[in-house]
């Protein structure tokens, strides 16, 4: 970790000013990702603008029926907020499927959006990695890449976005509110994260100096038909191999509206709006779900066939979609199939 100065800002515009007035500065939220990256020398900011005192921790109802999540509300406070639990149980359960109680007590909603990939090569300075050092190459293309993506990848990068929360936010069609040197703006969630293309060093579409201030949830929370299915290498405290967040509006056995997103498979939470449309107006059935799953992974590309490599995610991802849609329609969910629940029927 390099040396840095630190300012504790007390207001949002002050924070933006502080950051833009220092070269090589970064915002410090809960620090659960940034401090980790700094200890590995992957991030080397010379100044930190600490956001801990900013008044962005509230969770408030919006006039249009939605809910605003303060960017500095912790993941734990968000998951356990009564309004989130009642109206957006998908989000609540998704947050609780990620990380650990200790991390969720500190990690912020804004920081969750901006966490960086867990690709082994990104995390190891001794290896080529285009995301960390543009132009150095991608070690994951051929090396062990179990953690890497199969959708929307490029020859420059096959890293995935590691968040669980963001998968639910994608399905819920959240809107990200940001404030920067040029004022405030909003970003649709699907536009917030980006695909690697030729510039994998860029994870998202934030402009320099911009700070996430809030995440707005639309009114529809799919509280009657939802699921978050997370598949991983152990029961808890592991990043997703594949995860699926589903929200449905049902009328009897007919799907009126469908939103779903995948984690663990792409550089961003993966939504396929054409696949969503295939579900809408249709009767829920295993065949339909299989067709949808096939559509989502039609263009997928695996990078190696053995268990150290990630081609298995294509088949696993399809099966996960089928299972998640089934769980959401029937509301018979096992939220975390990695965990054997004694109390489960």
């Amino acid at each position: 970790m390099n040396s840095f100065t630190l300012t504790q800002a007390t207001a949002t515009d002050e924070a933006v000013r502080d950051l833009t007035s220092h070269d090589g500065a970064a915002y410090l939220g809960g620090g659960t990702n940034l401090v980790d990256l700094m200890k590995y020398n992957l991030e080397r900011p010379t100044h930190l603008t600490s956001l801990g005192l900013l008044p962005l921790t509230d969770i408030t109802s919006l006039p249009d029926g939605g809910l605003r999540l303060g960017a500095l509300a912790t993941n734990a406070d968000t998951a356990w907020h009564p309004e989130v639990e009642k109206r957006y149980p998908l989000l609540s359960q998704t947050i609780l499927a990620g990380a650990t109680p200790q991390l969720r007590n500190v990690a912020t909603n804004g920081g969750n959006l901006n966490q960086r990939t867990r690709c082994y090569y990104f995390y190891d300075l001794a290896t080529p990695c285009n995301k960390r050092e543009p132009g150095s190459g991608c070690s994951a293309l051929t090396g062990p890449n179990r953690v890497c993506g199969v959708l929307g990848t490029s020859e420059s990068c096959i890293a995935t976005h590691p968040s669980d929360m963001c998968v639910a936010l994608a399905a819920l069609e959240a809107v990200v509110r940001v404030q920067g040197p040029d004022g405030e703006r909003t970003i649709k969630f699907e536009d917030y994260h980006r695909l690697p293309g030729d510039h994998p060093e860029k994870d998202n579409t934030l402009k320099p100096g911009e700070l996430v201030t809030a995440i707005d949830l639309p009114e529809e929370g799919y509280a009657d038909h939802f699921t978050y299915l997370k598949l991983r290498d152990r029961s808890s405290y592991a990043f997703a191999l594949v995860s699926v967040a589903v929200g449905l509006k049902m009328n009897g056995n007919t799907i009126e509206k469908a939103r779903f997103a995948l984690g663990g498979v792409a550089h961003k939470p993966w939504r396929d709006q054409e696949a969503e449309k295939m579900l809408e107006g249709q009767t829920a059935s295993p065949d339909l779900f299989r067709q949808v799953a096939a559509k989502v992974f039609a263009e997928a590309k695996g990078y190696g066939e053995d268990s150290l490599h990630n081609s298995f995610k294509i088949e696993l991802g399809k099966r996960a979609i089928v299972r998640a849609l089934k769980q959401a329609t029937e509301m018979s969910q096992v939220v975390n199939p990695n965990v054997f629940l004694n109390s489960n029927p």
């Binding site: 630190l6 620090g31 659960t32 401090v35 980790d36 600490s50 109680p101 991390l103 007590n105 500190v106």
Partner: peptide, 13 residues
Amino acid sequence: GKRINSCLALATV
């Protein structure tokens, strides 16, 4: 009263 990982916390804040 809340549990956290002290390794990822900067003491000064």
